[in-house]
């Protein structure tokens, strides 16, 4: 009788142990292995002690696929393992403020400055930019195409009470959108203004399904375009610039922060070689780059 129970337990146990592949390598191109077999150059800075780096970043860098390219490069170069936590910029900054991350890659300049002033983050550096765009259904019910400015477009949407899908998640894009409503002197409210409470990819899908307008970063839009019935209706306005900064979480304030790892990643992001990779990322797939490298340029944001 008990045989059956034991057998059942065994099934479960094997299931559990089966998964116990010896030291599952962090990634197909494990940093140590690659560097020993292919690269004659020793790792730039062999990590002493903690080799895990927690990167808190926005969904756009992950959903666009940029991090899938950059992180293996960084791991191979330095031997660190990056734990990417891709959340909205609001949450990423909050993680930094609580010392729960080592390095932040975010895109909400105003909010970032506050975190630096508070002392939670240091060494804020310009990495890259792309731009926000306003997308919507081809029919363009609020007739925003051809608007001279974002403010005008937003005013038209509000006036026509045309459906607008907001991220509503305190992300960088959401912060930007609220800034723009404020500039247009409109308090977005009513049944035409809906908050999805999800990431950019999901929000674009919702806008596409419901035939609404939304503000998106260009990278995520291009990456998802094949599934969307949304077209670009406004672009190129100065207020639509989307700027990414990298910051290290202050180890003096949070002793458990992996200071060396955070610094290594921040340095990597502004390294000329990485910047070249950023510049070419997406060209083959989308015919145009998704991000424009900015490291070393005067930071006016």
């Amino acid at each position: 009788m008990k045989k059956y129970l034991i057998f059942a337990l065994c099934v479960l146990a094997t299931a559990a142990l089966f998964g116990c592949t010896p030291k599952a390598q962090p990634q197909s191109n494990s940093p140590t292995e690659e560097s020993s077999s292919k690269e004659p150059v020793p790792p730039v800075s062999a990590p002493a002690g903690n080799k895990d780096v927690i990167l808190a970043t926005t969904t756009s860098t992950q959903d666009s696929g940029l991090l899938d390219v950059l992180i293996p490069l960084f791991e191979q170069k330095t031997g660190y393992r990056v734990k990417t936590v891709a959340v909205g910029t609001g949450q990423a900054l909050a993680m930094g403020e609580r010392g729960e991350a080592d390095v932040l890659l975010v895109h909400a300049p105003e909010a970032e400055k506050k975190v630096v002033v508070s002392g939670a983050a240091i060494n804020r550096r310009l990495v890259m930019h792309n731009d926000f765009i306003i997308v919507g259904p081809k029919e363009d019910p609020a007739k925003i195409k051809g608007s001279r400015s974002t403010v005008e477009a937003f005013q038209k949407i509000a006036k026509a009470k045309a459906l607008f899908i907001s991220r509503g998640d305190d992300s960088g894009t959401n912060k930007k959108e609220l800034e723009l409503w404020k500039a247009a002197q409109i308090e977005p409210k009513g049944s035409w203004y809906q908050e999805s409470g999800t990431g950019m990819g999901q929000t674009l899908t919702i806008a596409s399904e419901k035939g609404g307008y939304t503000l998106t970063d260009r990278a995520t839009y291009l990456a998802l375009k094949k599934n969307l019935s949304l077209v670009i209706l406004l672009e190129g306005d100065k207020s639509l610039l989307n700027v990414y900064h990298v910051m290290q979480v202050n180890p003096e304030k949070f002793p458990r922060v992996n200071a060396a790892g955070g610094k290594a990643f921040a340095d990597f992001m502004v390294d000329p070689e990485t910047q070249k990779v950023i510049a070419s990322f997406g060209k083959d797939k989308f015919g145009e780059p998704l991000f424009f490298p900015d490291a070393g340029k005067p930071d006016i944001y």
């Binding site: 990634q27 899938d68 734990k83 990417t84 990431g199 999901q202 990456a223 998802l224 094949k226």
Partner: peptide, 21 residues
């Protein structure tokens, strides 16, 4: 945290692929 190659399980991978489209 859905860390690639480390803590990514099937369900979190599905969520990620959906948000990637």
């Amino acid at each position: 945290g859905n860390v690639r190659g480390y803590t990514r399980v099937l369900t979190t991978a599905i969520v990620l692929e959906v948000s990637k489209g």
